[in-house]
Design a protein around this nucleic acid. Structure first.
Length: 125
DNA sequence: CCAATGACCTGGG
DNA sequence: TCCCAGGCCATTG
């Protein structure tokens, strides 16, 4: 198995779990990492989400990337993570459209809107 | 090969 | 509550 295959498998695992986040809820990069049994790879969860289409459809990936609600993934501190301005704005719009309150265009109350199902890695380690 | 770079996380101050 | 240092690790140049 090549390095690319491993990376792709990781991406698929991320996408499948992101699809489980209920409408109107959010979870963290770190929690997705725990769900795929890679509790130390929260940064790589973020890397995987970068491959998702922002606007146009990608046909070079054997996976329905248009079905992945990437906007429901935020940082464990409850804030929209920094990156290019455009997609941050879009994330806020998409969240508000499904009823999630976003304070100051960046902060979300995880007690109200968080989705953090139990995992085997509830302690970071 | 090595250094820099992230859509990150936690604990301490 | 906010901020930061240190840890983390795949990817990129």
């Amino acid at each position: 198995m090549s390095r690319e295959d491993l990376a792709r498998a990781f991406h698929y695992a991320v996408y499948e779990n992101v699809q489980m986040i209920p409408y109107g809820h959010v979870t963290s990069y770190g929690h997705i990492a725990k769900l795929i049994y890679k509790p130390r790879n929260s940064r790589q969860v973020g890397q995987a989400l970068k491959f998702l289409p922002q606007g146009e459809t990608r046909l070079d990936y054997p996976y329905n990337l248009n079905n992945v609600p990437w906007w429901r993934v935020i940082s464990s501190s409850g804030t929209i993570s920094n990156r290019d301005h455009g997609s941050m704005i879009r994330q806020v719009e998409l969240l508000r459209a499904e009823g999630v309150q976003v304070i100051n265009d960046s902060k979300i109350d995880l007690v109200t809107f968080g989705w953090f199902p139990e995992t085997e890695f509830d302690e970071y380690d």
